[in-house]
């Protein structure tokens, strides 16, 4: 029981990190960034590439992981900003359908671009975390898991600080509420959107590196399912709401962990998506989302 909760928490923190980016981008420009899951994959590959370039393999050092984490975050953040600049910004006034389709194109480009470079087969991630564990309250906890949870929690705290306490954060919230009014008030909308893409993408990149270190193998399609799951998490929490994304991620992680225990692991994804559909049917605003009347 406790074990299930703990496992759910680990998976859930990955979901939450990716869901945050989804939710932030959606909140600010109402775009479902399909490529977001692939940024997660890119994060893992950036880490892999750098480490391989230095000839590192099979390391277990936490400082090294942190360095790689930072590097991947910056790189994926910049890639995210670049994607927004090239593919999404020109379409900001277009209908949703056009932007969504572009996002799928971007997702495809990233996936198969990586496949063209690194090949279709899974690669072993060079930095592993120790998996020696201790028994705690009836669950098996490994050091690596604790490191992951601590890093994830730290990143979320930093994000919460940025959004709640800084000028940039206030601008983000303003744009999410009313982009035109924000612009009239002198907010540099383009810059804020770039910032949001940077933050969201770097969180996804961080999650990618952590997943690489945790599971040990990465491949070019690893972002697809987690993208979907993160979206589910964002919807459960209330899309556009940051705490909702965190809550949704953790909740989905737990649900999945219990779901696979009850129905068998092969039904895990079905269980998660069924939850998505149920939520959209009965509570489309999610747990923490506010009900808004769409303006006519």
């Amino acid at each position: 029981m406790m074990q299930l909760i703990w496992n759910g928490l680990i998976v859930g923190s990955f979901y939450a990190l990716v869901a945050l980016g989804y939710s932030m981008v959606y909140g600010i420009i109402k775009l479902l960034n399909f490529a977001h899951g692939d940024i997660y994959m890119l994060g893992a590959f950036v880490g892999f590439f750098t480490l391989s370039a230095f000839g590192i393999s099979n390391e277990t050092s936490i400082p090294l992981l942190l360095v790689i984490l930072l590097l991947s975050m910056v790189t994926t953040g910049l890639i995210g900003v670049g994607i927004e600049r090239v593919a999404y910004r020109p379409l900001r006034r277009s209908p949703r359908l056009a932007v969504l389709i572009t996002a799928i194109g971007v997702s495809f480009t990233l996936e198969y671009g990586v496949r063209q470079i690194f090949g279709p087969n899974p690669e072993a991630f060079p930095v592993r975390l120790e998996s020696t564990g201790v028994d705690l309250l009836g669950m098996r906890v490994t050091a690596s898991q604790i490191v992951l949870v601590v890093i994830a929690a730290g990143l979320m705290l930093v994000l919460a600080h940025i959004v709640e306490r800084t000028r940039e954060g206030r601008a983000m919230r303003a744009i999410a509420l009313d982009p035109q009014a924000a612009q009239l008030m002198g907010v540099n909308v383009n810059r804020v959107i770039s910032t949001v893409f940077f933050i969201g993408s770097s969180l996804a990149g961080a999650a990618g590196v952590m997943a690489g270190a945790y599971y040990g193998s990465i491949d070019f399609l690893m972002g697809f399912v987690i993208g979907l799951k993160a979206f589910t998490a964002a919807v459960i929490g209330g899309i556009g709401n940051l705490y909702g994304a965190m809550l949704g991620g953790l909740l989905l992680g737990m649900l999945e962990s219990f779901g696979s225990a009850w129905f068998g692991g092969e039904w895990r994804d079905v269980f998660a998506f069924a939850f998505l559909i149920l939520f959209l049917t009965f509570k489309p605003t999610g747990l923490l989302g506010a009900r808004v009347v769409e303006r006519m």
């Binding site: 420009i29 900001r92 006034r93 277009s94 209908p95 009313d178 982009p179 035109q180 612009q183």
Partner: peptide
């Protein structure tokens, strides 16, 4: 396809 009148952003 650009069904939205000139505005800063596509807003709901």
């Amino acid at each position: 396809t650009a069904a939205v009148p000139p505005s800063v952003l596509e807003s709901p």
